[in-house]
Computed example of a mutant assay.
Amino acid sequence: MKITRLFPLACAALLGLASCSKDSDGNSSKLEVRLMDAPGDFRSVVLDVRQIEVHLKEEKDPDGWKNLGFTPQAINVLEYVNGRSALLVSEDFAPGDLKEIRLILGPDSYVIGTDGQRYDLKTPSGQTSGVKLKLDKATLRERQTYQLLLDFDVAKSIVERGNWRPGNDKKERYLLKPVIRVVAQDLRAGIRGTVTPAAARPQVLAIRSTILGPDTVSTSADASGAYLLTDLAAGTYRVEFFPSTTAPVGQPAYRTAVRTGVVVTNDQITDLGAVSVQ
């Protein structure tokens, strides 16, 4: 079965699926960058992320940096705790080794304290040279999805100035000194199952909500009704089944079926069993 990834928000109906699929080089890889957080003693921690880059050559080669397809945005990292993560980048990428990843931060990062007050975060290095994170043995292979999970530690990353007192300038209370652990891994999760009747030959969509909008992976059930979606990131999906044929005369009409709350875990295949579209 051929698996394609679809542009977010582009496919509203079955008739649009063929024109919405994104073609890519059969030898390319897919790179994902995700962000998650360890909880901290704040109501909100908002990072002003302007750019994300990866380094493809030796460490001191200034020409080795490649800008990733990331839309600048403010991200409240406290929304991504307890296993939740924000998808920041998902793009086709040439196979090869990655040496480093760098986040360029803007001047508008801030926290909301437990007192409900906003305090700007000063980022001494993040605004200029960027927050650089070294990667150990990060190799993208052909036709595989590779994920860089940035685990942001709020408690260690936000430092309160020792001489700050209530009544002082709120902009001077906290410094942002990012402490981020990188987890690099091939994505080998998936969803499988069967659709009845097999003659419906449905299109199968697995949809996951992300910070970039819906991320959709699709395939088609084969002649026996079986399907397999691979290279999925861990998370919770809505799986939709769209019949591509009409039922024979005298039989109940085929209909769209939906399964919600499908939990996918990395390195495991989630089996949905049999799903009826009649």
Rank of each mutant, 00 (worst) to 15 (best):
A74W: 09
T4Y: 13
I211H: 07
L232E: 03
S44D: 06
L9E: 13
D97T: 13
S85L: 01
I207H: 02
A274F: 03
W164M: 04
L149G: 03
M1H: 08
V263N: 03
I75C: 11
G16C: 05
R188M: 08
P39D: 02
K132D: 07
S90A: 15
Y227V: 10
E59Y: 08
A198Y: 01
I112T: 10
G26Q: 14
R208M: 15
G130H: 04
A138R: 07
P166Q: 11
V49Q: 02
R208V: 11
L9A: 13
R143F: 02
A12D: 14
A200L: 04
R238T: 15
L232Q: 07
Y254V: 06
Q268E: 12
A155V: 14
L148R: 04
P39I: 14
D120V: 01
V239C: 09
T236N: 12
R165C: 03
K30D: 12
M1Q: 04
G64F: 05
N76W: 01
C11L: 10
G116T: 08
G225Y: 12
V258F: 04
S224A: 10
P124N: 12
D63R: 05
A247W: 00
T4P: 00
L15F: 04
Q117H: 06
N76G: 01
V154W: 01
S28E: 11
Q51T: 08
L212Y: 00
D37Q: 11
L56Q: 14
K30L: 11
S209W: 02
R181S: 12
T219C: 07
V277W: 04
A94H: 05
A198N: 10
T245D: 00
S19V: 12
G106A: 13
Y174L: 04
E160Y: 02
N27E: 10
P39F: 03
G273W: 12
P166F: 14
V54C: 09
G116V: 07
G83K: 10
S21L: 10
S19M: 11
P252S: 04
D271Y: 04
Y254S: 00
K132L: 07
E53V: 13
V45Q: 08
V159E: 09
L133D: 06
G225D: 11
I101N: 05
A247Q: 04
L148T: 02
D108G: 07
V182A: 11
A10C: 06
K30G: 01
D186V: 12
V264A: 08
A94V: 15
S21V: 15
P178V: 14
V258T: 15
M1A: 15
R141A: 09
F152P: 09
R181C: 06
A234S: 14
V217W: 10
K137I: 02
L56H: 02
Q127G: 02
L140Y: 01
V183Q: 14
P72D: 12
A13W: 04
S276N: 10
I104A: 07
N76P: 00
E100C: 05
D231R: 13
S19G: 05
Q51P: 00
A206Y: 05
A10P: 00
V263C: 12
A221C: 11
V54P: 01
F42A: 00
S224H: 07
R238A: 05
S21R: 11
K134Y: 07
L133P: 02
L187Q: 14
G26H: 10
